[in-house]
């Protein structure tokens, strides 16, 4: 976490112009500039400047947007729930379908369906989100007029961006599920379970899924974190009022405090999700210890 702030600070410092100005924005009053300047200790050494910056961040002061002069943090707080909704909706589509299709293709090895799923999932990873978003938009909202093309709102607005966002995640999930499951199916204990006469569904749930869950959770965690990445593009195209679009607007207008704030928050969320994934490992597989010295 500290690393991110250090990095963001480096970015800020490397921007042209006064660091204080780039923090508060050019429309700030001279007093505000002066107070920030004092707080951050401009003119003093690097370490002191950095601790000053950290102090500002800890107080929740991410600076103000150059254009709207609104506090970046309050805007992020306002938009964050939207992004979360989108991310959860995309997960809701991607996770079940990804796992089921992955299982399916592990079972139909060498058959047409496996090849088809394989090619489709590779395509899902290859087609850029911004293109598939536009295609989906043309088909479903402009031609078929089933969904509104853009905007933020209820489930009708949510459906298309969530679907588009779920495609790469679903594809990654299919591939990893298939690879793990087909490895597990070769294991002797599956033969044992079959020989015992367990019903196939039971084998899958208590033997295969249980052992495949770690890589699957890893991918889900990584994907969930990267929804914030994909969201930059998806939210922009569908006009979904979340962090991603906010980032994009910041980029277009060169609104540095906004970009910095979004990057810090985005990275923090990413790290946080990875942390949760790591913690989950321990519950899913007690053999994995959280601490190296935890013997």
């Amino acid at each position: 976490m500290l690393g991110i702030t250090l990095f963001a600070f480096f970015l800020l410092r490397s921007l042209p112009g006064d660091i204080v100005l780039s923090l508060v924005g050019e429309r700030a009053s001279p007093e505000a500039i002066e107070s920030i300047r004092k707080e951050i200790g401009a003119g003093s050494g690097f370490i002191k400047q950095y601790t000053g910056y950290l102090k500002l961040l800890l107080h929740g002061d991410f600076g103000r947007s150059y254009y709207t002069n609104r506090s970046v943090l309050s805007d992020i707080v306002l938009k964050f729930p939207n992004t979360m909704r989108l991310a959860f909706a995309a997960m809701f589509i991607a996770v079940p379908s990804g796992i089921i299709l992955g299982f399916l293709s592990a079972h139909r090895k060498g058959r047409f369906i496996e090849k088809f799923i394989n090619a489709a999932s590779l395509a899902g990873l290859s087609i850029p989100v911004f293109w598939s978003a536009i295609i989906v938009m043309i088909i479903f909202s402009l031609k078929l007029k089933l969904f509104p093309p853009s905007g933020t709102g209820d489930i009708r607005f949510l459906a298309l961006p969530a679907f588009v966002l779920s495609i790469p995640a679903m594809s990654a999930l299919i591939r990893i599920t298939k690879a793990t499951v087909s490895d597990i199916l070769k294991m002797p204990y599956i033969n044992t379970a079959r020989a015992k006469g367990l019903p196939s569904l039971r084998i899958h749930i208590s033997h295969v899924l249980k052992n495949a869950v770690i890589p699957i959770v890893t991918i889900i965690g990584l994907d969930f974190g990267s929804y914030l990445n994909g969201a930059v593009v998806t939210e922009t195209i569908f006009g979904w009022d979340g962090i991603g679009r906010f980032t994009m607007e910041g980029i277009i207008k060169r609104d540095y405090p906004v970009i910095m704030g979004c990057i810090i928050v985005g990275t923090a969320v990413f790290v946080f999700v990875n942390l949760i994934t790591d913690l989950l490992y321990h519950y899913l597989d007690p053999r994995i210890r959280l601490h190296a010295d935890d013997k």
């Binding site: 990445n229 930059v232 980029i251 970009i259 990057i263 985005g266 990275t267």
Partner: peptide, 11 residues
Amino acid sequence: LSFPSLLLAIA
């Protein structure tokens, strides 16, 4: 690697 790679590239 702990950064989301696209955000880092954007930065």
